[in-house]
Write a protein that binds this DNA or RNA. Structure first.
Lengths: 392, 392
DNA sequence: TTCGTTTGTCCAGAGACTTGACAAAGCGAA
DNA sequence: TTCGCTTTGTCAAGTCTCTGGACAAACGAA
């Protein structure tokens, strides 16, 4: 037998069957609670016996709990079950460009306690130190079992090994952040790109029924997309899927921090918009000022912002044309621009792609904008540790 | 329990475990033969006992066969196994724009017998009749058990139901081609978009080790892509993934048959190139003439063709930027343009996307061009019926 | 109160993988 | 040639998990 053997998936065993069905029960309860054991049996196709057994071990694990009895439909009244919200706690981190945020999150996605630490120009090891501070601060005072730590950060991130391969503003390269924290805290750690995390947050906590395919575009200081296909986060061969911010839009104007010119990020990101608006109207120096000027219809500003929306729409048009995905969400500070801006994005996207595909696609704002990365990182951790949403 | 219950995947059962492991063995042998039972045990992680049992049923089914003994490595010499090439035969069809092709294919992807029927303007029911003729002609004279019929056709195709939702030049809309043929011939039938099929052909028969992600762009009369992500064909919510031919390239010149303007297809397809070249050099009236003129460096023609390559490169740049996929293959008649053309595509694609992503991506010609759709349709059928390559 | 229905659980049974053991088959050294 | 060691393929018993049938508990309605 030669050395470079074919790579095969894991074999199927009894234990895998068990785990899979346990996750099936867990996922049903996560998607919509409460359910009785009999409900779950009908829903999953398993027998009442099997469900009873599975539920037993899940209750022993503290992951689900009984919450009283439901209304009878002519027979014995069912015992209702739900995910035990505080069966586990998670720590979710958002390593943003201006500040690091962290929160303790429960299994329902409730944020129990959150902290923000300004970055103030720190990078490299100093930034790692800040991460440690954040986790230390969140870990005190919580006697609930900790499922692990989920981290979202800008840049190219290898989630399978927990390595930050490249993050411009933090000045990290090939940083094994995951293993480092795992060793320090002794709990599982997952690290993912912030836009990818955002997509998972919307999918896991805010979309019912869960779409198979979903694209979430996060427009903040940068522009990035999280792409969920067949119910799973798609990261690409090099973990760089969704890097829409650095695709060339043709017009080579402003230089981009990636070293090239004409990237979408130099046109449509908040950073670029604030700069462009500031050049016209010097009083505008930050996002707040820009948004206010846009909403107040200040001459010139409106056009700048809507032009950017148009370019973003072109990028979305490509996404729709290439992937034919029906759900596209926009999250981040751009949500403040409101429906005029969104309308421009929609028009532009629809104009640049085959009608049959575009007409079915919904382009909307996401549900959360501030904590979306924290929640998404938590969602990824839940998915990896508990199997919510992951279809084997 | 409310009516709109959450959609859950199938529960795991013993039988599924069995099927899964059987497919694991089958897939190992399909990827690289021959292997002994002991090899397979090491490769899959199953015990020798289990593998022996699985192999037994597969041999009884006629899907694999023993092919003598291998060299001993100090102990008893192993009995070598491989897929029985003619354990099943398949019929693969390519419903092209100018002609319908069909072939009998075996499990190794060998084409045993093929036919071509010119379309001669037929569409609608007449085209369906032609499909039936093709199958009838291929079915005679083959006593090997028929696994089924695989069909690749241009247009938007719902593979899950076997429906051609929309095919311009065949004038088909919502045609339930799959069920129709299933009823007539009593064997499983799969229908897929031709570019999607092409991608499956390259993945299934010509790429070792099998890449996780692969994009195959078929440039012929139209332009379409087949997108394989996480080892599976990705079709999108409306089965229209990969419709790169109808994304707007900005410059709104020629009207497209889809009703819009500036589509990639009006610039980079063979149909468009022949038309553009014909306008400059009236002696050019078909693909052959165009290719000859390009290779002979006829004034003006070269520029037209390379301009098209550049535009195609932009589209590939978007694909790479959005999906970060490392393997991109080009198939179809454009392969005749050779390395100059390919070089131009590569340059353009690399220029329009983040260096970190582009540098890892290989853009090459595919292995087959003529029979790629026939083989791909067969591959899809094999995948669905035998589970080769599909990871549950 | 009684009957029918629904729920949750217990017990036996079946399917598939694993473990341990063993015979068959081959290489190599004494 | 013979013996010992290794590898291969198979057999029997054991374990894990799902399934099917049966039963008691719980509830509404007559």
């Amino acid at each position: 037998m030669s050395a470079n053997a074919t790579v095969l998936p894991e074999r199927a065993t009894h234990q895998q069957t068990r785990t899979f069905n346990q996750q099936l029960v867990l996922r049903a309860l996560h998607d919509r609670s409460p359910f009785s054991r009999a409900d779950l049996a009908r829903l999953t196709g398993l027998t009442r016996t099997s469900v009873g057994d599975l539920v037993g071990t899940l209750i022993d694990d503290g992951l689900i709990e009984e919450v009283g009895r439901g209304r009878s439909s002519g027979g014995r009244s069912p015992i209702l079950l739900r995910i035990a919200p505080d069966g586990r706690h998670l720590i979710g981190l958002d390593l943003g460009e201006a500040r690091f945020s962290g929160a303790v999150v429960n299994l329902r996605g409730d944020i129990l306690h959150s902290i923000h630490l300004p970055l103030e120009g720190r990078d490299g090891d100093a930034a790692v130190e800040l991460v440690v501070q954040l986790v230390d601060a969140l870990r005190t005072d919580d006697r609930c079992p900790l499922l692990g730590i989920g981290i979202g950060a800008p840049g190219i991130i290898d989630t399978s090994t927990g390595t930050v391969r490249w993050s411009v503003n933090l000045n990290w390269a090939e940083l094994r952040l995951g293993p480092l924290l795992e060793q320090r805290y002794g709990v599982p750690v997952v690290v993912a790109n912030d836009s990818h995390a955002a997509a998972l947050a919307e999918l896991t906590f805010f979309r019912r029924p869960r779409p198979n395919n979903l694209i979430v575009i996060k427009v903040g200081r940068g522009v990035g997309a999280g792409i969920i296909l067949n119910g799973q986060l798609f990261q690409g061969d090099g973990h760089g899927a969704g890097e829409v911010g650095h695709v060339s839009m043709g017009s080579a104007d402003a230089p981009c921090r990636c070293g090239r010119e004409g990237c979408l990020e130099t046109i449509a990101s908040m950073r670029a918009l604030v700069a462009a608006a500031g050049a016209v109207e010097p009083t505008i120096t930050d996002e707040g000022g820009l948004v206010a000027a846009f909403l107040a219809d200040v001459t010139g500003i409106r056009r700048i912002v809507l032009d950017a929306a148009r370019q973003l729409g072109v990028a979305i048009g490509w996404l729709i044309g290439l992937l034919n995905v029906r759900h596209v969400l926009l999250v981040g500070p751009v949500a403040q621009f409101g429906d005029d801006w969104l309308g421009e994005v929609r028009r532009s996207a629809r104009a640049s792609v085959l009608g049959l595909l575009a007409s079915d696609t919904q382009i909307e704002f996401g549900h959360v904008h501030d904590d979306v990365v924290v929640l998404g990182a938590s969602a990824l951790l839940m998915e990896q540790q508990l199997g919510l949403g992951l279809v084997r």
